[in-house]
């Protein structure tokens, strides 16, 4: 029961952060709120047994990405000019998409139900075979690095692409300036 209330409180915090993020006209505080959002999500991940994900979310989502935002904010205006001409359209889109998802949720398995399809098919295979196939106790590592290792290769390529992209976009700008001087 205690767990239920703690989770409830954390989720409530997330909702508050998200709504404040809409309202705030200080871009810098929005950025910090995004970091807080990631960090609280990481805590929820721990309570949902996803320790590896919590670790990554705290390090990469709350840490690295906030660092990137702060580094960028150094060169960007700190305040937002509020124009509300898109609000109605955005509200309609979100309501439609949200209703579709709520409608879909009626046929979703209950959270934590051990009889849900995902705990019956594929998932159990990893739990029973990782030890014999890989000899390591961490199932997430086993799946990440071996069963679905190809996804991880793709993930690495994504990082390389983004890194190269940032280099091309920003490194390029500096080169321009050098040529002009």
């Amino acid at each position: 029961m205690a767990e239920f209330f703690i989770n409830g409180f954390l989720v409530f915090l997330l909702a508050v952060i998200a709504i404040v993020a809409i309202q705030s006209i200080k871009v810098f505080s929005t950025v910090m709120l995004a970091g807080a959002y990631s960090l609280i999500s990481a805590i929820i991940f721990v309570s949902l047994d996803a320790v590896d994900v919590a670790f990554t979310e705290a390090a990469v989502g709350a840490g690295l990405s906030t660092v990137l935002y702060i580094a960028a904010m150094k060169h960007l205006p700190k305040r937002e000019k509020v124009v509300n001409d898109n609000t109605f359209f955005a509200l309609v889109v979100c309501l439609v998409v949200g209703c579709l998802l709520v409608w879909a949720s009626f046929d979703l398995p209950q959270i934590g139900d051990p009889m849900a399809p995902i705990h019956q098919h594929v998932g159990p295979y990893y739990i029973t075979n990782t030890k014999t196939d890989m000899g390591i106790p961490n199932l997430v590592t086993g799946v990440l690095a071996s069963y679905r290792g190809y996804d991880t290769l793709g993930e690495t390529v994504v990082i390389f692409t983004a890194g190269l992209g940032v280099l091309l976009l920003l490194g390029d700008g500096r080169n321009n300036r050098d040529e002009n001087e």
Binding site: A104, D107, L108, P109, A116, P117, I118, H121, V122
Partner: peptide, 10 residues
């Protein structure tokens, strides 16, 4: 995610 949750496979 929705399809995965009702089938368990990707």
């Amino acid at each position: 995610g929705l399809l995965y949750s009702i089938t368990g496979t990707l």
